[in-house]
């Protein structure tokens, strides 16, 4: 068994001394998405890889996410959304996030069920990459499984954060 689970402290700020361990990864949803399990899983997984995680939880307003990222300078931002609004909200969010000079080079990835269609809309990944995401893990044929999707994000997160070391 791995190390015992640490309780999740009540205040986000308490749980995240900047530059702890291998660095801090911000896990967050988009502002209209209320799903949580994807975020809880990502938190445990990324913690097991040696990072500190600031889990902002579901329905995070853009401003809050941006302010928290500016405050703690994360080694990576992982956006996960499964309610079907992720594509639109992701495009809006990345625009605002990249507009902040402090976050212009921060690795930011997005994944989940990003549209309400059964299959990922054509051009969705390209649009999100063009807008400024470093990687897109869209659901769809071949990756329809939430589990596969999430599992596939983590090593990638480790890779990017480890190699990038941009903070």
């Amino acid at each position: 068994m791995n190390r015992p689970m640490e309780p999740v402290p009540a205040r986000a700020a308490d749980r995240c001394p900047p530059a702890a361990r291998a660095g801090t990864v911000v896990v967050s949803s988009v502002s209209s998405d209320a799903h949580t399990w994807n975020l809880v899983f990502l938190q445990l997984l990324i913690e097991e890889l040696g990072y500190t995680v600031l889990n902002l939880g579901p329905c995070v307003p853009d401003d809050l996410l941006i302010e928290e990222c500016c405050r703690i300078a994360p080694v990576m931002v992982v956006i996960s959304s499964v309610n079907g609004h992720g594509r639109e909200e992701g495009l809006r969010l990345i625009d605002r996030l990249r507009a902040r000079p402090e976050l212009a080079a921060t690795p930011v990835v997005i994944g989940g069920k990003l549209g309400i269609e059964h299959e990922a809309a054509a051009g969705q990944t390209e649009a999100l990459l063009d807008a400024g995401f470093d990687a897109v893990f869209a659901d769809g044929p071949g990756a329809a499984d939430f589990r596969t999707l999430l599992a596939s994000m983590a090593p990638r997160a480790g890779e990017l954060a480890g190699d990038g070391g941009r903070t």
Partner: peptide
């Protein structure tokens, strides 16, 4: 069991 909660344990339970 104590210490049962890991990301893979959580996935097992969720699925």
């Amino acid at each position: 069991p104590a210490g049962a909660v890991t990301s893979s344990g959580l996935l097992e339970d969720l699925f």
